[in-house]
Write a protein that binds this DNA or RNA. Sequence first.
DNA 1: CTGAAAGCGCTTACAG
DNA 2: CTGAAAGCGCTTACAG
Lengths: 339, 339
Amino acid sequence: MNRKRVTIYDLAKAMGLSPSYISKALNDYPMINIKMKEKIQMTAQKLNYKHNSYAANLRKGISRTIGVIVPNINKKFFSEIISGIENVCFENDYGLIICQSQESFEKECKAIETLIRQNVDCIMISITAETQSTEYLQNIINNDIILIQFDRYIENFNTFKVLNDNEFMAYEATRHLISKGYRKIAFLGWVEQLTINKLRIGGYLRALKESNLPSLIFDNAIQKERTAEVATKLLKSIEPPDAFVTFADHQALIVLQVAKSLGIEVPEQLGIIGSGNDSLTEITTPTLSTIDQKSIDLGKQAADLYFEILSKKLSKKTIIITEKIVPAGIICRESTMKF
Amino acid sequence: MNRKRVTIYDLAKAMGLSPSYISKALNDYPMINIKMKEKIQMTAQKLNYKHNSYAANLRKGISRTIGVIVPNINKKFFSEIISGIENVCFENDYGLIICQSQESFEKECKAIETLIRQNVDCIMISITAETQSTEYLQNIINNDIILIQFDRYIENFNTFKVLNDNEFMAYEATRHLISKGYRKIAFLGWVEQLTINKLRIGGYLRALKESNLPSLIFDNAIQKERTAEVATKLLKSIEPPDAFVTFADHQALIVLQVAKSLGIEVPEQLGIIGSGNDSLTEITTPTLSTIDQKSIDLGKQAADLYFEILSKKLSKKTIIITEKIVPAGIICRESTMKF
DNA sequence: CTGAAAGCGCTTACAG
DNA sequence: CTGAAAGCGCTTACAG
């Protein structure tokens, strides 16, 4: 590999100046003669000089790079978060290195190793479903890298966190249905053991309790067939629910299909709310109400948090914020418009 | 920033050996005493030594990093491509730096600059809709960085390319509809000037010509309202089409809605095919036939291409392949099952 | 099999 | 305002 680029030495030689002077000029040091500065920057451009980040970072001991680890980047939720992170990083002239754990703890560990070797300044991670051990995360901190967990995180592990408020999200969705006049609201949950699922159940129950309404919880109803099965069973029962809170748009859509096939009118006889604000939810008939998780914003918040920490660290102030909550919003469309 | 890590010097001191020897042991050089090698690797682990990629890359002049620039990573098509690229990179222990151009030529240029400074070994790019100039891309090549264009690319610019075959994609989709017995097939296109749109029209016309069928082309029917407007007008006309080829699932879904609202039976009276294989297309009633663009595979192919080029380059062989075509597939579901 | 020395391209105290 | 020198943490010819 003989990628021979123009260096500050080349510029120095070409201009009869010292390399250190060139470096300062290029980095906008104040004590440089303004005329010279301009001249040097002109020449750099002309000679197609490219600053070598590796050399600078090695010298400075920082990388201006953030590493992100997510289970999958080809999921709307995560790709939006990354998009949000990327925007903020770009503005601050920070690079982003992306890794996918593919829900494998082993890949996750390898990704962490890689990012540490890459000398990243910060690692943002949403852990896999498998991740139990806190050892690798601790390793990040031991290497003086700022660790921010987002969305899926390890509890009882004291790091920075940026999270959706799942309890509140479920509470709001349930409240929304209640406010629209629905009275027997079924909950279609995700995997039972997941923390987020438990939190959602909590929010759901809280809303019901406030209005003295009965609960109807079905966990593990995330797979297509299972969702259809549960929805069918419930809607055919003697006292069917008059609404469903779900936490994925595809769940909501399946419920909608089942309802249609049984001749049940949505939203008149049945209210349905999904989650994720998939672009197709605007197009269905009826259009689907949905929980907007503000995932781009969540990514933005995570990146903002990093830069806050950084500035506090530089100014030696104590750091106060360790957890940010990004509130979800309810997007009200036809599927919950009983009135 | 006093991120003080363990270096090979620390290891050398701790073990009474030379840094260069440590380096060789850690890099699995053959001439090192096997016992020593093991001992050194043990100690490195114990002392929590982390190899510093920046230092190594600076010395070696390579980065083992690939830069990717896409308009938006929070679009299914692109995030899947990136996912495919990431998988291959991870296997080869290559890092990935992601940038979004947000369809802005300016941001695209800035991203290219950043990646060059980062010393990436390869840049994979899908250009913005604005991009006309070839100057920045040329700059990549001038810096001895391998350039691979994917999906959206500049024509008449001789670089490596990995593409969907848009002509063939449209041809196949149209053929599919013909084979199912549809005879008056309307084409709902994207922005008129786009190369891909022209290619698709070509494929559509080719299929029709083979079967001596009439054409019915409507460009700029990608926005929700416009799609609905065109579909409504056509379906209400005296001789309405009996099928629609579209190149986005949301277009297909809108057509489906319009048809339903007009009491037209799908697929009996009207065939519809979308594109993108959105997860919700499996859930609609009827389920939607769609063009599967194999985007994860496209990403994988792009990364594979890089590693092929690399190995050819190292073995000083001439490079032959410059363009890879990833064929799309038709996923046949209910919306085109006339028979 | 092991080590001394130079160098990758920058930046940063320090000196003038 | 300008420059000489050291050093960031590695790797790699070269020598022994």
